[in-house]
Amino acid sequence: QKDAISTTIINFNNEKMEITWATSKMFPGKNVSFYYTFEEGKQKYRKTCPTYLFTQGYISGCLFKTEGNSLAFYIMNSNGSEVLFSKKLKSDFYIKPNRPENVTFFWKDDTVTVTCNKPERGVRCLRLELQYKSKFDKGWQSRTSKCCRVGEQGFDPRKCYSFRVRLKRIVPSCNVVDYSSDWEAETFWMNSTLLDSCDDEIKAQSNTVILISCMMTLLLMIFILLILLCKWQRLQKSVMPTIPDPKYIFTDLFNDHNGNFQEWIDKTDHVVVQSKLEYEELECIIEEENQQIEKKKSDKQEPREKIFSFSEATENNHPKAAQNACLMPTFNNMVSFAGLQNVVNDDMYVML
């Protein structure tokens, strides 16, 4: 019998037992046999291993059903005539629990509470462990509490966190080996929202940055185009000044005469001459009134003198003639332009 043989013993949730050994070191080039018995059973005879485990073609372990707490097993030679190793143990000190079931996350402000279903056996020996990290954390942060509820606070609602939970056996009061369950599937949360992965947060932020960048680029391009448009309009006005449309200046030519210049000029000639006569008549009347006022003033201050002027002479001798002199302009010449007869007055203006 060899007491120095190293074996690994696992009781899977007190349902199945797995015992393995390093066969290449302990029994190089040899095949062995395995027998076991539970003292609580009615029949305490040795049972042959129902399921062998192999490593490189040699038996390296056995998998069998857990039938009690007190276990004795034997590693023997291939024909079972010699015991190579034997051991007695309490199987419930080697329990590895199953994964937690029905894991639920509760979020409230910055606090997260995780719960799971209670196992059927050994609840007092179990602890629920919660691990979490954000993309800014280098490693996992852990929090352990009694089964089956654990809480932690201080979570930033703007960050995405990875969570995982498992059940652990208490050492050494319940287990001689520190066995924990496998980790429950990792989940990703951000402010009470379940995500497929924390990459979604990065993608969402990237999409937001891209959208903002595109909008800013578009606004900048519109601003530059407006500036260029203003510059172009100024350049166009300086290089190619706008030519006024005559139809907006001579509205009556196009509206009343349909662009007939000869008809329009004949009508305009009568209007201009009449306006000129009315203006000169008004000018003569004003000049006559001013001279009468000056004459009254001179009669009071000095002896009356004879002042000869064209206006007074005509007023004293022929009042109507003076009035006609103001009304009728003196025409000097007639100017012909493109077949049209135009009058030139004393001020050298062409009367159309």
Results as ranks from 00 to 15, higher is better:
2 K>P: 04
3 D>I: 05
4 A>I: 05
11 N>I: 01
11 N>A: 02
11 N>Y: 04
19 I>M: 04
19 I>Q: 06
23 T>F: 06
27 F>K: 02
30 K>V: 07
33 S>G: 10
34 F>Y: 01
46 R>H: 07
47 K>V: 03
47 K>P: 00
57 G>A: 01
67 E>Q: 03
70 S>M: 09
72 A>W: 08
73 F>P: 01
78 S>E: 15
80 G>T: 01
88 K>Q: 15
90 K>Q: 15
91 S>L: 01
92 D>T: 01
93 F>P: 03
96 K>P: 01
104 T>E: 05
105 F>Q: 06
106 F>S: 10
113 T>E: 13
116 C>A: 13
119 P>M: 05
124 R>W: 08
125 C>F: 01
132 Y>Q: 04
133 K>S: 11
133 K>H: 13
135 K>G: 11
141 Q>C: 04
142 S>Y: 14
143 R>H: 01
148 C>Y: 00
149 R>V: 10
151 G>P: 00
153 Q>Y: 10
154 G>R: 00
157 P>L: 06
171 V>Q: 13
180 S>G: 10
185 A>G: 03
188 F>G: 01
191 N>M: 08
194 L>R: 14
195 L>N: 03
196 D>E: 13
196 D>F: 04
201 E>L: 15
205 Q>H: 04
206 S>M: 07
222 I>Y: 06
229 L>W: 11
237 K>P: 02
239 V>T: 13
243 I>S: 13
251 T>V: 12
257 H>N: 14
260 N>I: 00
261 F>W: 06
262 Q>T: 09
271 V>P: 02
273 V>M: 14
275 S>L: 11
285 I>Q: 11
291 Q>G: 04
291 Q>D: 11
297 K>R: 15
297 K>P: 05
303 P>L: 08
304 R>Y: 10
306 K>H: 03
307 I>R: 12
314 T>Y: 14
319 P>F: 04
319 P>I: 02
321 A>F: 10
326 C>H: 06
334 M>K: 05
338 A>V: 13
339 G>Y: 12
340 L>S: 13
346 D>Y: 09
